[in-house]
């Protein structure tokens, strides 16, 4: 049976104010022992203790930069832990960034095969699935043409169709898997649900609290790299919602200002401001 165990798992990044350390800077640092570009420690995850057993559908919430995606990537084995232990038992399928690895000059069929191989299929198994993938993508004759002629929506459809054609034991899903037009989105949502049903264990990160509520049987709330709350999804999501509303009402504005300042300090780039996310969540949740 699939399971995931985290024992005191922590992950610390070393970041620099400037994106990369130049050769010159390195030499200067060695010579003068002082650098204009000192490394900044970002404690992305701190002392996470968690047991996820088979049958669990775990929802992860938290505001931007709380460590949600890092958490998923740690489970996927992409990031090494800095201290502690992560034990994963089971074949992991991850849906993070589905727009990876297209060959622009090749046609749709070739890309289905290529993407399938990237996901760990064998040439034989992906050929068996190709027809089903093509049907789900609804791209029809377009599949015979090179994908550089595809529209953005068509590309997403193709990517989504291939990425979800897996038989997962452990399924890790990162948010924003919205694909294509409205009709396709409904279809896509259904497909994700089916995928979750087939998987033994699911961990899902999303800002769509409604979706998490309907899918998950357990939830955790990550805050600044730590588990702030865990348990029944209703309780956790309710508490998270309340926290967000309070912030929106301005009661915790000072706290927020402190948060933001800290984030900048940590070298985290707050590309999206906090406010729209709150609105987004509220709307979706309502």
């Amino acid at each position: 049976m699939a399971y995931i165990r985290l024992e005191n798992a922590s992950l610390t990044f070393q970041m620099r104010r400037l994106a990369k350390l130049g050769f010159k800077d390195y030499v200067v640092k060695q010579l003068f022992r002082r650098s204009k570009n000192p490394p900044i420690e970002v404690r992305a995850l701190q002392n996470i203790n968690l047991n996820i057993e088979a049958g669990t559908r775990l929802g992860v919430v938290g505001h931007n930069g709380a460590g949600k995606s890092t958490f998923l990537k740690l489970l996927a084995g992409v990031y090494p832990v800095t201290s502690g232990r992560v034990v994963v038992n089971g074949r992991v399928s991850s849906l993070f960034d589905i727009n990876v690895g297209f060959e622009w000059e090749a046609n749709g069929w070739e890309n289905i095969e290529f993407r399938g191989l990237l996901q760990g299929e064998t040439p034989k198994s992906i050929r068996a699935k190709a027809q089903e993938i093509a049907e789900f993508s609804e791209l029809g004759d377009f599949l015979n043409g090179p994908i550089r002629h595809y529209s953005a929506g068509m590309l997403v459809r193709l990517a989504f169709s291939v990425a979800t054609a897996v038989e997962p034991e452990i399924l890790l899903v990162d948010e924003s898997l919205s694909a294509g037009d409205l009709a396709f989105q409904t279809k896509a949502k259904k497909r994700i649900h089916q995928l979750c049903d087939r998987a033994e264990l699911v961990v899902m990160v999303s800002h769509d609290l409604g979706a998490l509520e309907s899918l998950c049987n357990r939830a955790i709330w990550l805050h600044k790299g730590q588990i702030r709350m865990q348990g029944d999804p209703c309780d956790v999501l309710e508490a998270y919602r309340e926290y967000q509303t309070n912030k929106g009402n301005g009661e915790a504005q000072q706290q927020e200002a402190a948060d933001t300042a800290e984030k900048v300090d940590e070298g985290d780039s707050p590309s999206e401001s906090e406010q729209p996310t709150v609105d987004f969540c509220e709307k979706r949740a309502a």
Partner: peptide, 25 residues
């Protein structure tokens, strides 16, 4: 079971078999 911890050491045989498993990729 895959263990991810600071002192996990992967043996040569295991590493090579990992390369072999991802050969199609």
């Amino acid at each position: 079971e895959v263990v991810n911890s600071p002192d996990t050491r992967i043996g040569a045989a295991e590493y090579l078999s990992g390369i072999w498993r991802s050969r199609y990729f």
